[in-house]
């Protein structure tokens, strides 16, 4: 029993939610948000897609099996600790630099990459569990 209204609504909402989740991830360092929250919002969006259009739509949209994200997330988080080693600092020391852009300065740092890893893990975890539960 798939509702057309829900499907249309999801079609509209899912991209917005995904965009919003990235926004939450990026601003998390200064305002409420971050990898955990962004990841949860992104997975909520993906599950919304699943509820409205079925798990196969999710699989199609993800292109790759979502459980691969589990490994990638951990790898990204781990990799964020490596640059510090190159500077002779302890593993996972945060490094920052500011990149000037036309719309203002943009802070880029290894903790942001770490948060991206958290984001990817959370999405991987929630979506993997959802898809497995659906097909069980």
């Amino acid at each position: 029993m798939r509702s057309i209204l829900l499907a249309k609504l999801a079609e509209l909402l899912v991209p917005i939610l995904l965009l919003f989740s990235f926004f939450l991830l990026l601003r998390g360092h200064d305002l409420p948000g971050g990898g955990f929250i962004g990841g949860l919002v992104a997975s909520a969006a993906i599950i919304l897609l699943g509820l409205s259009s079925g798990p196969s739509a999710v699989r199609q949209a993800m292109k790759r099996p979502p459980h691969l994200l589990l490994g990638w997330g951990i790898l990204i988080a781990l990799a964020s600790g490596l640059p510090a080693l190159a500077f002779g600092l302890p593993f996972m020391t945060g490094l920052w630099s500011t990149i000037p852009t036309p719309i203002g300065e943009f802070k880029l740092g290894t903790p942001l990459i770490f948060d991206l890893g958290v984001f990817v893990v959370v999405v991987g975890v929630v979506v993997t569990i959802y898809l497995e539960m659906r097909s069980a």
Binding site: H29, P32, G73, I74, M92, G94, W96, P111, V121, V125
Partner: peptide, 30 residues
């Protein structure tokens, strides 16, 4: 830590290694 949200700087900077352990637990659960 160049961040105004202290909760987040604790998670991704001050105690990042702990967070790494925690996301590993999540992965294990999945």
């Amino acid at each position: 830590a160049k961040g105004a949200n202290v909760v987040n700087t604790i998670l991704v900077d001050f105690r990042a290694l702990d967070t790494l352990g925690e996301i590993t637990v999540l992965v294990l659960a999945a």
